[in-house]
Write a protein that binds this DNA or RNA. Structure first.
Length: 493
RNA sequence: GGUCCCAUCGUCUAGCGGUCUAGGAUAUCGGCCUCUCACGCCGGAGACACGGGUUCGAUUCCCGUUGGGACUACCA
């Protein structure tokens, strides 16, 4: 019987949740879901300078929005500082660590020298072999010290099998005696993280590849503490189009999860897209429901190659990775309308054009209208912008089609008038009837129907494009169509 | 500088020695549909970084070069 899987996502609350972090969270979550394991959220807030409560709230909100649920936590690393220090004390006692009295200045100087000589910048182990008397003497003199792990010396190496990258070996001589506790008594990440993982019983560490290089150090800590070493699965990093690691500093909002929430992404569509960054199935399948993704997920599908989040700043057509948009658009047009409904509602509310009746007597109409227009929308905000004319009479008319479809044809001034009257008189405002009236009128006046149709479209929607005109007329409704046609006459001044 | 990781269309990727004249998706271009736009459908262009091996045979295995990335803090 295999032991139960326990994974964790340990963000440090120094800003919003960005897509790299979200991706890590998603993979951990998927693995837990897939294996029936446990997913723990742990906030690593030990960097007091940079951590903030606001950031914690933001991260949690983003995770919730994505639909990433955790079974335990959030725990806060800062609450376990005592444990971390106790672990260091234990290591000191068991001879796995030692006190180092070197000052920061000394070390910086040595490092600088090494750099000049182009040698490795490792700590030289100056305090490693201090006698107990020397240590006592320095302590008595009130000298501050850091605690360093005593890395085994000699020919051996640390070895582990990463689930994604395979066997990784690191020679002891390439690992310096690294600091695990600061001179002010604060434990360091490399220690705290390991101690927390041991306490939480983490069985699989799934994290970014940037953790790969210090995994040997952590394994050394596990071993020195006599704890079982978890399995590791490192995932490739997410880079920007210039192949630089994505960061809040250089990319700002465009890499923040909340940015996608605000820009009309469906949470699951975004998760689906993120899951596809650096993970795939043998059949290259792309669209997965939640259940399907969990079913299909496997750590084996994680790629070793860094992937690029193709953000396009200042691209008029794509405000972010086109693939992300295309997946979102795919969901918008294929989801059962009822599932899309709440998101559209949210956008209309935000735009101040929500009518409570859309949830009651007009709900049928509301759903039909969403269904009518959704195939050309990419983000849910489009319903309130491009689709505004369906939900509000206060919509603007695009000057380009106004000129091309309306003003260019002077006859429309009169025909809109006539048409408005005729449409007002139609008893059954149906697809067939409206089409008949309009086509007959075009013939009567010797016009190509297209000219009349495009003119009406622009008058009624303010736009040059959209669904088939007769569908539009039905959706907008007889009364409003007549009104809008009469109003359009004013365009001729 | 040192250690480590990686390398297939612009991007996300399939491929795990012959099935590859390299598949899918997205983006892009052309066509069909048509009252416009989108959807949908059809088609085009577009990649195995380079050089050595190993092998009857390399995109696939090994080595090197080049390129990219990570780590290298008393940050997490």
């Amino acid at each position: 019987m295999a032991e139960k899987v326990i994974v964790r996502f340990p963000p440090s609350p120094t800003g919003y949740l960005h897509i790299g972090g979200a991706r890590t969270a998603i993979f951990n979550w998927l693995f837990a879901q897939k294996t029936g394991g446990k997913f723990i959220l742990r906030i690593e807030d030990t960097d007091v300078e940079r951590s903030s409560e606001e950031s914690v709230r933001g991260i949690i909100e983003s995770l919730k929005w994505l639909g990433i649920t955790w079974d335990e936590g959030p725990y806060f690393q800062s609450q376990f500082t005592k444990e971390h220090v106790a672990a260091a004390r234990k290591l000191l006692k068991t001879g796995h660590a030692y006190e180092c009295f070197c000052t920061k200045e000394e070390l910086d100087r040595k490092r600088e020298e090494a750099r000049k000589k182009k040698a490795a910048l490792q700590y030289d182990g100056a305090c490693r072999n201090l006698t107990p008397e020397e240590v006592a003497e320095k302590e008595a003199a009130g000298m501050q010290y850091t605690i360093r792990l005593k890395v085994p010396r000699g020919e051996g190496f640390v070895s582990f099998e990463d689930i994604v990258y395979g066997i990784i070996e690191k020679k002891y001589q390439d690992i310096e005696d690294f600091v695990i506790v600061r001179s002010n008594g604060q434990p360091l990440y490399v220690l705290s993280n390991a101690v927390d993982d041991i306490r939480d019983g983490i069985t699989h560490v799934i994290r970014g590849q940037d953790g790969l290089a210090n995994t040997p150090k952590q394994i050394l800590i596990y071993k020195a503490l006599g704890a079982p070493v978890p399995k590791f699965a490192h995932m490739s990093l997410t880079l920007d189009p210039k192949k630089a690691k994505i960061s809040k500093r250089t990319h700002g909002e465009s890499v923040a999860v909340h940015f996608y929430k605000e820009h009309g992404f469906l949470p699951w569509a975004f998760v689906n897209y993120l899951a596809l960054l650096g993970w795939s199935t043998p059949d290259s399948r792309e669209i997965f429901s939640k259940e399907e993704l969990i079913e299909a997920f496997s750590l084996k599908g994680i790629s070793r190659v860094n992937c690029i989040f193709n953000v396009r700043k200042d691209d008029p057509k794509f405000f972010t990775d086109p693939k992300a948009i295309s997946i979102n658009a795919n969901y918008i047009r294929n989801l059962p309308v009822e599932e899309l409904e709440p998101y559209v509602r949210e956008q209309l509310e935000k735009a101040g054009i929500w009518d409570p009746d859309y949830a009651r007597e007009k709900r049928d109409w509301f759903l039909r209208t969403i269904d009518l227009i959704r195939s050309r929308y990419h983000v849910t905000t489009d319903f309130a912008t491009l689709g505004r004319c369906y939900f509000s009479d206060d919509y603007s008319t695009d000057p380009k089609p106004l000129k091309k479809n309306i003003l260019k044809h002077e006859g429309l001034k009169e025909w809109f008038h006539i048409l408005a009257d005729r449409l007002e008189d139609v008893e059954e405002f149906t697809l067939e009837e409206t089409e008949r009236v309009i086509r007959e009128m075009a013939e009567e006046f010797g016009f190509k129907a297209g000219i009349l149709i495009n003119g009406i479209r622009t008058a009624v929607t303010g736009q040059p494009k959209g669904p088939g005109l007769f569908d539009v007329l039905i959706a907008v409704g007889q009364h409003r169509v007549v009104q809008r046609l009469r109003k359009a006459v004013k365009f001729f001044g």
